[in-house]
Every structure is written in structure tokens, then in C-alpha cells.
């Protein structure tokens, strides 16, 4: 039991320790394959492989993985209903899906589109949950020659996302206090809409402050600078890329070899 836990911990560390650019390339290739291969079994594989890697190796709670898939499911559900209700418009998809094992061509195509939305979401979640934004930006600056000004702007924008939730909550406190109403645990649609403009103003203010902070601390447009703790490429990155691409190839071959079964 203890040994299994230690292995999982090592795996979790391993996914996070991988070079973000290696992961980025693998995820882009898998995303491209999901878009191009119109087969429900392939899409299922593209969902299961990253989700199993997250749950087993990254110790991500299955509930978190499921919760992350909710918006993608809603998005995919739109494809499903569109495909079932508007058959004429999805003629190409129906023809493609007509060869799949699912009974009704319209439903089959809808399911494949639904799964494709989930697969794209899961691959993106895999990258987001196993990658430190700071390490990604550093890797891009070192290995992809991203200018530091753009790199740090990108970094600041990524860091802003989690802070928006905290800022929104502070605004909700202030409003609840002034209105005398009890604060609801989750904001309703009306409250959410009313928070958009103040949050946008906060984001603009914050961006301005970050720019001033960076300039005052010496971030120059094109002067040479050191980038500390930049991720380097190691053997394990090569192994990860090879394993991920091999898995993709196997899934692809399985679909090609057995297209109708």
C-alpha cells in the first residue's frame, strides 16, 4: 500500500517535472488527431488516457476531473442535439458516422462530436493541471525565444485568472453588506452579469500596476537577462513524448485496421 502511494507520488512529481514544451507538443498532436479522426472509439481513448494519467499519476481526485468536464459536456451536448435534430446540415458527419458501429447514423455522429468536445477538454485539462504557468513561460522564453515582455504579460494574464475569483468574492461581500442581503453561497446569473464590468475594471487596473511594477524593477524591452529555473529537456521528456505518440499511433492503427467492427 505504502509502495503504491510512493509510486503515485513519484508519478505526480514526474508529470509536473516534465518540460512544459514537451507536454505542449504532445497535447497539440493529440488535439489535432481528435479533430481529424472522426471515430467514437478514438475519442474515447483520447478521453480515457489523459484522465487515467491525471487520476493515477497526478493523484487528481476523480470528482475534480468530472467537474472539469461539465462545461465541455454542455458544449458537446450542443453538437449532439444539433446532429440529431438537424440531420441535413450534418451530412458529411453522418456519412462518416454511418460506418461506425452505433445504430442510428445521426445519433452516432452526434455522439462522436460530443466525445470529441470532451476529448479536447480532457487533453487541455491534462496540460493545465500538470503544468506550472511560470515554468511554461520560462520554457517558452528560453527554448522558443519568446520576448520577455510578451512572456511576462502572458504570465501575468495567467496569474490573473485565479485572482479574479477572490476579487469577485470581495466585491460580493461589499455589495451584500451595503444591500443588507444575505450573501448566497454561489452568485446567481444576475449577480454574475453585474460583476463583469467591475471585474474588467479590476483586471485593467491590475494589468497597469503589474506593468509599472515590472518596469520599476528593471524589465527592459530588449536587454539581456537571466532566466532562472528554466526547464531543460531531459531523457524523461523524450520518453514521455515517445510513449504518448506511440499510444496515439496504436489508437489510430486500431481505428484504421478495424473501421466497421
Amino acid at each position: 500500500m505504502r509502495r503504491g502511494g510512493a509510486m503515485a507520488e513519484a508519478g505526480r512529481g514526474m508529470l509536473k517535472a516534465l518540460n512544459p514544451l514537451g507536454k505542449l507538443v504532445v497535447c497539440f498532436v493529440w488535439l489535432a488527431a481528435s479533430v481529424l479522426v472522426f471515430d467514437a472509439r478514438f475519442q474515447l481513448a483520447a478521453i480515457l488516457i489523459p484522465s487515467l494519467a491525471l487520476i493515477v499519476l497526478n493523484r487528481t481526485p476523480p470528482l475534480v476531473v468530472l467537474a472539469l468536464m461539465v462545461p465541455f459536456s454542455l458544449f458537446g451536448f450542443g453538437f449532439l442535439t444539433t446532429s440529431v435534430l438537424f440531420r441535413q446540415e450534418s451530412d458529411f458527419a453522418l456519412r462518416m458516422a454511418g460506418e461506425s458501429p452505433l445504430a442510428s447514423p445521426a445519433f452516432s455522429a452526434g455522439v462522436t462530436l460530443f466525445l470529441r468536445a470532451l476529448a479536447c477538454g480532457m487533453i487541455s485539462a491534462f496540460f493545465a493541471l500538470t503544468t506550472d504557468p511560470g515554468a511554461l513561460v520560462r520554457a517558452l522564453m528560453v527554448h522558443a525565444r519568446l520576448p520577455p515582455r510578451i512572456g511576462y504579460s502572458l504570465f501575468a494574464a495567467m496569474q490573473l485568472v485565479p485572482d479574479l475569483a477572490a476579487e469577485a468574492q470581495q466585491m460580493r461581500y461589499a455589495r451584500a453588506m451595503k444591500s443588507g442581503r444575505r450573501l448566497r453561497r454561489l452568485p446567481g446569473p444576475g449577480e454574475l452579469v453585474s460583476l463583469v464590468i467591475p471585474l474588467l475594471a479590476f483586471a485593467i487596473r491590475r494589468a497597469g500596476r503589474t506593468a509599472i511594477a515590472m518596469e520599476a524593477r528593471g524589465l527592459a524591452p530588449d536587454a539581456p537577462r537571466t532566466i532562472t529555473q528554466a526547464p531543460v529537456f531531459r531523457r524523461r521528456d523524450a520518453a514521455f513524448v515517445l510513449v504518448a505518440l506511440a499510444a496515439l499511433l496504436l489508437c489510430g492503427i486500431a481505428v484504421v485496421v478495424d473501421p466497421a467492427s
Binding site: R206, R209, I212, A213, A216, R217
Partner: peptide, 12 residues
């Protein structure tokens, strides 16, 4: 700066 958030950039 007067506001710590004006000095920091939101990093680790």
C-alpha cells in the same frame, strides 16, 4: 510603492 500589489507582479 504604497500598495504592495504595485510592487509585486503576482509571481511565486
Amino acid at each position: 510603492f504604497q500598495d504592495a500589489d504595485q510592487t509585486l507582479c503576482g509571481m511565486r
